[in-house]
Simulated assay, not measured.
Amino acid sequence: MQDMLVRLLDLPDIAKEEDFLLKTEDIVIKRPIAPEKSIVTSWVTSNFSTNWADEVDVAFANLPVNCYIAQRGQSILGFACFECTSKNFFGPTGVLASERGKSIGKVLLVKSLDALKEMGYAYAIIGGVGPVSYYEKTVHARTIEKSEKSIYQNLLKHPK
Rank of each mutant, 00 (worst) to 15 (best):
E145M: 03
V44F: 10
S150A: 04
L22G: 05
I144K: 03
A15D: 12
S150Q: 01
T85Q: 09
K149V: 13
V129S: 01
D3E: 04
I144L: 11
F20C: 11
I39Y: 07
F60K: 00
S49L: 07
V44P: 07
I151Q: 03
F82R: 06
Y123N: 11
K30S: 04
V139P: 03
E99K: 04
Y152E: 09
P35V: 07
L156D: 14
K37F: 13
G101M: 10
S38F: 11
V139Y: 02
E99T: 06
K106R: 11
L11G: 09
N66M: 03
R100S: 05
S133T: 12
P92K: 04
N47F: 09
S98V: 03
F89P: 00
P159M: 10
P32D: 11
D10A: 14
E25Q: 15
E36G: 07
A122C: 05
L8A: 11
T24I: 05
I76T: 02
I125G: 00
I104S: 02
K102V: 11
K106A: 12
S112G: 12
C81G: 09
Y121G: 06
K87T: 15
V44Y: 13
S42Y: 06
A61C: 06
K102I: 09
A61P: 00
P35C: 03
D3N: 15
K16W: 05
V28I: 14
P92T: 02
P92S: 04
G78P: 05
R72G: 08
K102C: 13
T50Q: 08
N62I: 04
I69A: 11
S150P: 01
Q2W: 06
S86A: 13
F82C: 07
S98P: 01
L96W: 04
V129L: 04
K23Y: 09
P12T: 11
